[in-house]
Design a protein around this nucleic acid. Structure first.
Lengths: 143, 143
DNA sequence: TTATATGCAAAAGCTTTGCATGGGT
DNA sequence: ACCCATGCAAAGCTTTTGCATATAA
């Protein structure tokens, strides 16, 4: 967990949410704080729900509602999991990575690669599009 | 729709399925033929179900069962949709493409890009992994 | 005070599964 | 004849929604 990213995103999220005219309640606060700490790489809604239930700090409905809000404000990014459940991760300028899924263990590893980023930028230019998001998920086995 | 790809995949699918000891029934045949024609770029299970129901040629259960089989045999590729419903597309040596989603219209456009493929191969080598699949989904707007 | 956030429970999709039946080989 | 494929309906999951209540501003 990167403390700089956590703090920066937390303050970003705080201002964007209040700027959008939303009030801050206990459940939303709990979700936002959990995401700042553990949403730096893909976390599932179910995992958030389970964690909050363990500390009596929010219901499933509030988790989904908060995630929707954050998504609409561009504060989180959503990636569909292989099992039909969505995974979220915070959006922060200091975080730009892609994902590799080890099919042997199911474990997700984040990586960065400048060459890949350049290739994607090249594609966007060639297609004549302005990108708002890029999902790259590689799957395979370690050799 | 590319007729060469359709025919090649159809014969591939036929031999691999019977080779795996599976029998051919009406429903599975209908799914496989529909995929050969319209699964060259992302089609959802729901869409297949609706089409087959319209022609009384298969149930939801059979569609999912067939898709699972094809997936296990590596004959289709599965990509999770933004709305929590999976999308499938046939796997064919002559078809290697990535996807761009136009956020204005929701339309999906397939594209190929050698530079991107090279960059991905480079990443795999650097990470020391053997890839079994690569999902690249770019989202944005045409400029 | 007044609108919004929350929790519960019900509802809504998509997908899977059990079981009896039909059909391939 | 034997087993697999199929269809139906029920069950399972994740996610969404309605509504009464609690709470921030």
């Amino acid at each position: 967990m990167d403390a700089d990213v956590r703090d920066r995103w937390l303050s970003q999220a705080g201002s964007r949410l209040s700027g959008a005219g939303r009030r801050s309640g206990a459940a939303r606060t709990a979700v936002v704080e959990l995401l700042a700490r553990e949403g730096q790489c893909l976390i599932s809604a179910q995992e958030i729900i389970d964690r909050l239930r363990a500390s009596h700090a929010g219901s499933a409905a509030s988790v989904y509602r908060t995630l929707d809000e954050l998504l609409a404000l561009g504060l989180v990014h959503r990636l569909e999991g292989r099992d039909g459940s969505a995974r979220y991760e915070i959006v922060d300028p200091g975080l730009r990575h892609h994902h590799f899924v080890d099919e042997a263990s199911g474990e997700v590893q984040a990586f960065t690669d400048e060459g890949l980023d350049r290739a994607i930028a090249g594609v966007a230019e060639r297609l004549g599009v302005a990108l708002s998001s890029r999902d790259v998920v590689l799957r395979g086995r370690r050799t």
